[in-house]
Amino acid sequence: MSHTPELPERYVCTNCHIVYAGTVRHEDDTYHYSAPDECAACGSTDFVTFEQYVRHKTA
């Protein structure tokens, strides 16, 4: 049986709409993802998960 790699959680900056792979940490044989502390492009600290982005009001 082959291994299927786990996809990282993705986050979208609500200011400039850049997509980031979540920061990963490994605890108890499980991977946990979190949004970056700050957007490298615009400096915003407001992120939503990629799945929530399509329902997030941007205007």
Rank of each mutant, 00 (worst) to 15 (best):
H56I: 03
F50P: 03
Y20W: 13
A35T: 06
D37V: 10
H3P: 01
R55M: 12
T49M: 04
Q52A: 10
E27P: 05
T45I: 07
Y20S: 09
C39A: 07
S44Q: 10
C13Q: 02
T58E: 13
A41M: 12
A40I: 01
A59Q: 12
H26F: 09
L7H: 05
N15E: 14
T49P: 04
V54E: 15
C16D: 01
P5W: 00
C42E: 02
V48F: 10
T4R: 11
Y20I: 02
V12N: 00
T45D: 11
D46I: 04
T49G: 07
C13T: 03
N15T: 12
A40E: 00
P5F: 00
R25C: 03
S2N: 10
F50W: 14
T45R: 12
P36G: 12
F50A: 07
H17K: 14
A21F: 03
A41H: 08
Q52W: 07
A40K: 00
T30P: 01
Y33I: 04
Y53D: 12
N15L: 07
T58C: 07
N15S: 14
A35F: 07
E6P: 02
E38C: 03
P8F: 01
V19D: 04
T30I: 13
T49H: 04
Y33C: 05
G22R: 12
M1A: 10
V48K: 13
T45A: 03
A40R: 00
V19A: 08
T30G: 02
T58F: 07
K57G: 08
V19I: 15
T49S: 14
T45Q: 11
H26S: 03
S34L: 05
V19G: 05
C42D: 04
V54Y: 08
E51Y: 07
Y11F: 15
D29H: 10
V24S: 13
N15A: 11
E27V: 13
P5L: 01
H17G: 00
T30Q: 14
S2T: 11
P36W: 10
H56E: 15
Q52K: 14
C39G: 05
A35E: 13
V24R: 08
F50M: 08
P8M: 02
C16T: 03
R10Q: 11
A40F: 00
S34D: 04
D29S: 09
A21R: 08
V19W: 06
E51D: 15
R55L: 13
D46S: 13
Y53L: 03
R10W: 04
R10A: 03
E38K: 07
Y20G: 04
E6D: 11
Y33V: 02
L7Q: 09
Y20L: 06
I18P: 00
Q52H: 10
Y53R: 06
F50Q: 06
S44H: 10
P8N: 01
T45N: 08
V12C: 05
V54L: 12
A35P: 15
T4E: 15
H26Y: 09
R55I: 03
C39Y: 02
T45L: 02
E6C: 08
D46Q: 14
S34T: 06
H26E: 06
